[in-house]
């Protein structure tokens, strides 16, 4: 009975163990990583002038919940500031980029109209928008969200475009013989076909958004995780820098996880 629950693997790899064994393995991986890190510092192989111990980071994390030094805001406030920026930019990019990509991929006229503009905007690195953004919008939420938007927008467009282009001809024909209009086919056949690729694009967009967030905050901010890292450098506090990095890493993983749940909901048919 109990052996029945197995983790399915399309290639037939894996041990065929209970799911919790895999969960334990993941936790063990993280713990081993932290343990080796701690060990290197405790034994003095690596000097603690450059890197803090995981235990110290953990204590700092707790202290940072109420302590404003040295960057001027507590950790929750910094995190919230960063989250606001990242989510605003990302959501804007998804709600504009995905429909644009889908429409470009389906309607040739739209493709011809938007492609030239898009192809010129595409190679411009998102970070190079920073100076201009500061001139336009200052260093507030809007400015940073705008930079994030550019970083996340491009993969959203490209992937949904490519995804809908790959719609199987035969499925379009099925809809046609059922009497569907071009718009119905776009909506009912093209868009669902494009979903797996679109999600892959959103995943890339998410990564871009986080990495650009830090860059944006390093140049123009007064609060946030990136700003905290920057202040850590100014005050020569590697522990603050590392705490900022760890928080960004953890939040990124959390977001990817949440996205994964959404993806499973929407493209659950791909089993």
């Amino acid at each position: 009975m109990e052996r029945k629950i197995r983790n399915k693997d399309p290639l037939g790899r894996g041990l065929g163990c209970h799911p919790y064994v895999y969960t334990m393995l993941s936790i063990a991986g993280i713990l081993t990583f932290l343990f080796v890190w701690q060990l290197l510092l405790v034994t003095g192989v690596v000097s603690d002038r450059y890197i803090s111990k995981p235990t110290e980071l953990f204590l700092l994390l707790i202290r940072k919940f109420s302590d404003k030094s040295p960057d001027g805001s507590t950790l929750p406030i910094a995190t919230l500031a960063s989250l606001k920026v990242a989510v605003t930019g990302l959501v804007l990019a998804i709600v504009t980029g995905v429909p644009l990509g889908l429409i470009m991929g389906w309607y040739k006229g739209a493709d011809r109209f938007f492609s030239p503009i898009f192809e010129v905007l595409r190679p411009i690195p998102p970070i190079s928008w920073i100076p201009l953004t500061i001139v336009w919008l200052g260093i507030g939420l809007r400015a940073k969200a705008f930079i994030i938007f550019f970083a996340a927008f491009i993969p959203c467009v490209i992937n949904s475009y490519a995804g809908i282009k790959m719609t199987q001809k035969v499925l379009i024909n099925v809809a046609k013989t059922c009497g569907a209009s071009n718009f119905t086919i776009f909506y009912k056949v093209g868009i669902p076909s494009a979903m797996p690729m679109t999600f892959a694009g959103i995943r890339v967009a998410l990564g871009n958004a986080w990495s650009t967030l830090v860059a944006a905050e390093m140049l123009a901010a007064n609060a946030g995780l990136g700003y905290m890292i920057l202040m850590g450098r100014s005050f020569a506090r590697p522990d603050i820098i590392m705490l900022g990095m760890v928080c960004i890493g953890a939040l990124g993983a959390l977001f990817t996880g949440i996205l994964g749940i959404f993806e499973k909901r929407i493209t659950g048919w791909r089993r």
Partner: peptide, 30 residues
């Protein structure tokens, strides 16, 4: 395309995101 003429396709042309029921009812649904 004329609705009086239906077609069964060479490839197994089912919408992978739809269940058997949803695939079957697609014509009247459209």
């Amino acid at each position: 395309s004329d609705r009086r003429i239906g077609m069964v396709f060479q490839k197994l042309a089912l919408m992978p995101w739809k269940t058997v029921m949803q695939n079957t009812e697609i014509g009247p649904k459209f």
